[in-house]
């Protein structure tokens, strides 16, 4: 379980997150929607400590994320993250990209890491690309590679930061399908996304972010049909 209490985040003088309270249960799929700049991606980066926080508490399975005493490298092994710009490592083949972290972070043997990597690459549908370098893969394939890379660490939670926003339209589907597959398998997921269809069909809950606070949160039926907030209605009207 991930718990966030009264989270405040500043970029210099800019107050980006203004008191976020959120709990994500095991097995839940939470979609986060909202306008650009509303703080959605920043929230994800705070959860795995890629960004520091100025006030509040974030705990993953009871372990405080921002406590100086916490072994953050160990904690990050439980949190898999996939970025908008996939960030595949260009100097490694697909297989090496996925097998590297299990080997050097989890200290698994080469053989075991390779096995895990093969399994995850097949899992996301890249079984035939194991010895290919990222520069020979399409955006969609590189994004799936990034997902496989994160999955290879056997995380309990997956964080997706607008992972389809940088893709050509025809490549979006294959990535969303992979995410759907993970959701069906019971993975706990927090997905910052602009894909309303995905948010509505796959999520257990949807959180609408507006100007640094969670304006409204609830099941898709509430957010997309029976909005409690005018602001939510306005936002959805614009994106339809």
């Amino acid at each position: 379980m991930i718990t966030i209490q009264n989270l405040h985040k500043y970029f210099g003088d800019l107050h980006v997150l203004k008191g976020i309270d959120l709990t994500v249960a095991k097995g839940e799929v939470l979609s986060v929607i909202g306008a650009s700049g509303s703080g959605k991606s920043t929230l994800l980066y705070c959860i795995n400590a890629l960004e520091a926080i100025q006030d509040g508490e974030i705990a993953v399975d009871g372990i405080s994320v921002h406590n100086p005493g916490t072994d953050i490298n160990k904690l990050r092994q439980r949190l898999g993250m996939v970025f908008q710009q996939w960030n595949s490592f260009p100097h490694l083949t697909a297989l090496e990209n996925v097998a590297l972290s299990p080997r050097i972070v989890k200290k698994k043997s080469r053989a075991e890491s390779k096995e895990i990597a093969m399994k995850q690459l097949h899992h996301v549908g890249l079984g035939d690309k194991i010895n290919v370098y990222p520069n020979a893969l399409s955006g969609g394939q590189q994004q799936r590679l990034a997902i496989a890379r994160a999955l290879a660490m056997e995380p309990d939670y997956m964080l997706f930061d607008e992972v389809t926003s940088a893709l050509d339209p025809e490549l979006v589907g294959e990535v969303l399908d992979t995410m759907r597959l993970l959701a069906d398998e019971g993975m706990t997921m927090i997905c910052v996304t602009h894909e309303m269809g995905f948010a509505r069909d796959v999520s257990d809950r949807v959180a609408y972010f507006h100007e640094g606070v969670i304006e409204e949160i609830g099941p898709p039926s509430q957010i997309f049909e029976n909005q409690k907030s005018e602001q939510t209605k306005k936002f959805l009207a614009k994106v339809r």
């Binding site: 490298n73 160990k74 990050r76 898999g80 993250m81 970025f83 490592f89 050097i104 972070v105 660490m153």
Partner: peptide, 22 residues
């Protein structure tokens, strides 16, 4: 790109591992 470093750290690599390997 600093995002390479981010990706490496998000996988749990230490700063040294991230710099040397990635």
């Amino acid at each position: 790109p600093p995002t390479q470093l981010r990706a490496a750290r998000s996988l749990g690599m230490t700063p040294v591992q991230a710099y040397v390997r990635i």
